[in-house]
Design a protein around this nucleic acid. Structure first.
Lengths: 126, 126, 126, 126
DNA sequence: GTGGTCTAGACCACA
DNA sequence: GTGGTCTAGACCACG
C-alpha cells in the first residue's frame, strides 16, 4: 500500500495530481464518489490531514464537490472536466518538449519522431 | 550531495541513464573524462562498487572507454553517440505517447497539441 | 574442495570458462540447472558475489538463462550452444598452433603429426 | 621474479619442462651454458636443491651435460635434440587431441579446423 | 529457497 | 592517482 511520494514537492499536491490523472483516465468518472478521507489516507499511506488538504485544493479548483455528510464527488460540470483534460495535456506536452529540447532536439524532430512512432506501432485515432 | 534514486530500479542503471542523458545534452562531450569512480561515488552518495558497475555497463555498451590508470572517457565514436541520441529520443517519445494514450488522447491530439504549443511559444527549428 | 584459480586472470572469468567447457563436454546439458550461486560458491571456494558475476556474464552471453526464484539454467537455444562449441574449438586450435609455432614447428608438421597420431592410436571419426 | 608453479606436480619436473621448452624454442642453443644452480634458483624462486635435482634429471635424459667446475651445458648431440623436439611435439599433440575429444570433436573436425585456421591466418610452412 | 543489488573495506596492476 | 577484482555480510523481490 501507499505508493511513494517525491519529497521535493508537497504530498497533498502530488496526491491531487494523481486524482486528476485518474479522472482524466476515467478511472474516476463524473459524479463518482471519491474514497473517504480516512480511506484515502490509509490507501495512500499519508496522514488524513494531508488528504483533507488535497480534497480542499481539488474543491477550490472546482474539480470535486463536497456534500456534507455524504462525501466528496467528482464534479459533473463538463466544462471543468474538459479544461482539466486540456490542462493535463498541456502539462505533458510542456514537459515533453522541455526534455527534448534539453537533449538538443528541434521541433521538427519531435513531430517527425512522433509520426514515425505512430507508423511503426500502429496509431490510435481519436 | 547525493541526489535521490528510485528504489524500484537498480542504482547502477539509474546512474548510467543519468550519464547517458548528460552526454546527449552535451553536458559531457565526446572524449571528455568522467569523474573518477571514487569521485562519482561521493557525488552520487553511493558506494564506489556501484559506480564501478555503472561504468562497466557503459563500457559494455560502448558509450565509454576506460584507460587503465587514467580514467573513464566518453567515447569519440560518432556513430555510438548518434545511436545513443536516437535511443533516448525514442524512449522519451515512447514514454510520452504511453502517458498521453493512458489519458485518452488520440495520436492526432498529440501532434496537434505539439504544433499549437510550438506556435504559441515560438519554435526552435533544427 | 575449492579448485585452484590462476591469479593472473579474474576468477569470475575463469569460472565462466570452466562452465562453458563443461557445457561443451556435455557435463552440463541444455536446459540443465546450474548449482545455485551459494552452492557453487562453496564448491569453488570463492565468494558468492564472484559466482554471481560469473552467472551474469554467462547470461549476458546468452549461454545461461535465469529464472527468478528458481535458479540458473543452461540455455536450450541450439544455435548458442553450437556457437559456443565452435568458439571453444577455435580457442583450442589457436592455442595449440601458437604453442607449436613457438617451438618452431611448421603448419605441415602439425597436420602431419596429428595424422600420424590418429593412425597409431586409432581414430574417432565424426 | 619466479613464475608460479603448479602445486600438483613436482617443481623440479616443471622446471625441467620449462628448460626443455626453451631448448626447443632455441632460446637455449646446443652447447649453450645453462645458468648456474644458484643463479637459476634465484631466477625461478625455488630452492637450489630443487634446481640441482632438475639438472640431474636433464642429465639423466641426456639433454644436458655437466662439466665439473665449468657448469651445465645443453647437449650438442643432434639426435638427442631432435628426439626432444619430437617428444615435445607429441606431448602437445596428445594434449590437444585429448582436450578436443573431451569436447566431443572428431579427428576430422580437428584437421579441418586446423586447415581453416591456416587459410584464414596465413600459414608458416617449414 | 532462488538470483540481484548494495555497502564496506581491502588489495592489485597500471602509469 | 586510475580502474578492476574480491571478500564479507546484508537486504530485497520472487516463487
Amino acid at each position: 500500500m501507499g505508493e511513494e511520494f517525491n519529497p521535493s514537492k508537497p504530498i497533498y499536491l502530488q496526491l491531487a495530481e494523481r486524482i486528476n490523472y485518474q479522472i482524466v483516465r476515467k478511472e474516476l468518472s463524473a459524479g463518482e464518489k471519491l474514497p473517504s478521507v480516512r480511506e484515502m489516507a490509509i490507501r495512500s499511506g499519508v496522514n488524513p490531514n494531508t488528504v483533507q488538504r488535497t480534497y480542499s485544493e481539488l474543491e477550490r479548483m472546482g474539480i470535486v464537490e463536497t456534500k456534507r455528510g455524504q462525501g466528496t464527488f467528482v464534479t459533473e460540470i463538463e466544462s471543468v472536466l474538459t479544461t482539466l483534460r486540456e490542462t493535463l495535456k498541456k502539462d505533458q506536452i510542456t514537459h515533453f518538449v522541455s526534455d527534448m529540447r534539453e537533449m538538443g532536439f528541434s521541433d521538427e524532430e519531435m513531430i517527425q519522431g512522433l509520426e514515425e512512432y505512430f507508423q511503426v506501432k500502429g496509431s490510435k485515432k481519436g
